[in-house]
Amino acid sequence: MKKALLALLVIAGYVQPLLAQKKTSGNPIFQGWYADPEAAIFGKEYWVYPTYSAPYNQQVHFDAFSSTDLVNWTKHDNVLDSSNVKWAKRAMWAPAIVKKQGKYYFFFGANDIQNNEATGGIGVAIADKPEGPFKDYLGKPLIDKIVNGAQPIDQFVFRDKDGQYYIIYGGWGHCNIARLKDDFTGLVPFADGTTYREITPKGYVEGPVMFIRKGKYYFMWSEGGWTGPDYRVAYAVGNSINGPFKKVGVVLQQDAAIATGAGHHSVIQIPGTDEWYIIYHRRPLTETDGNHRVTCIDKMEFDKNGLIKPVKITNEGVSARRIK
């Protein structure tokens, strides 16, 4: 009788959605060529803002993805594109996002500038909602010069314990840190009068990330070449925003049985817990095109000494996790 009833329900379309429900996120967590994911938690929702991974002249917009459980993701098309940033013409990538006083600030790199005469660098867009639409905030780049050898790309925005926001950024093997004005319209010099400080650790290439856990400052970055199999994530630990940051080791890299070129990540912590996740991009084993990258998620754990355990990249991804 029960089997007959189940069969009828399946035919009627009531049971199939339950049978098809995903148990884990799977990797990639959503379809399409996306890289350099910036992950954030707003309220009880997870958000991921990746680079649209395409040739530079086509890479002129951003999509976003949201989820309440890390498993099922909703796509939000075109949260920002170059039509809303008049100075951005090509290669918009590697966003960072911050919510402050009810507004959402979206930082991004654009134009892939190669010298200080070119127009481009790190810009800021603003919106009232996490899904946008975002519009250019300044009408010009926030950072538009190559300082200390750091190409102005791959920015990460970090809020310190005292509420001060910093921008940590840089490509070409150099990383700078600068203090942001309260309204994100510019930079504020440090006490010694300098605006930019170089904090490049050994092996740094791009993609900085910083977070605090149990009073320690974890500084992470990507190494190797973004199109190659040596792309990976390393980290250092310091006692303050000023470091010093000495490399501890590599925590994320390719697995020849799973995917290549795992790197350029972000990190989220479940509020009120010591649960951590790493969101990153990698290249499927079947792909050789440099732009064919996908966004993935796996757990990130620490040992008893506070060191990050090597991350095992998986095809399964993670189980559902709602925010209470």
Rank of each mutant, 00 (worst) to 15 (best):
N315C: 02
A39L: 11
L180F: 00
F107L: 07
A54I: 00
L18W: 07
F211C: 04
E131M: 12
H292G: 01
P55A: 12
Y196G: 09
V71R: 01
L18S: 09
V10L: 14
G109I: 01
Y137D: 08
F219K: 10
H61M: 13
E131R: 03
L6T: 06
P201H: 08
G32I: 01
G43M: 09
N242L: 14
M220Y: 08
R159G: 12
C296K: 13
L187E: 00
R179Q: 14
I199S: 05
I97D: 01
K89H: 06
A54P: 01
A4P: 00
D230T: 02
P208R: 10
I212P: 05
F158V: 06
I241Q: 07
G163T: 07
I113Y: 06
K3N: 13
A125P: 05
I122K: 04
S53I: 00
G43R: 04
E206F: 15
K312R: 14
L138S: 06
Q16F: 05
G225M: 01
V157D: 09
V251L: 15
G102A: 13
A20T: 03
G290H: 09
W221D: 02
L142W: 08
Y217M: 11
S67K: 14
F108R: 02
S25C: 00
G26P: 07
A259L: 10
L307V: 01
K23H: 10
D77K: 14
P152F: 02
N305L: 15
D182Q: 15
P284Y: 03
T260V: 02
D230R: 05
Q151Y: 03
A20H: 07
N315I: 01
Q58N: 13
F302K: 09
W87M: 04
A262K: 00
K145M: 08
T185W: 00
V98N: 03
F106K: 01
N84W: 03
G225T: 04
Y56S: 04
T68S: 15
L252S: 13
T295W: 08
L138Q: 05
H76M: 06
G243I: 13
D81C: 05
P50M: 03
G243A: 12
P244A: 07
G123R: 05
A262E: 04
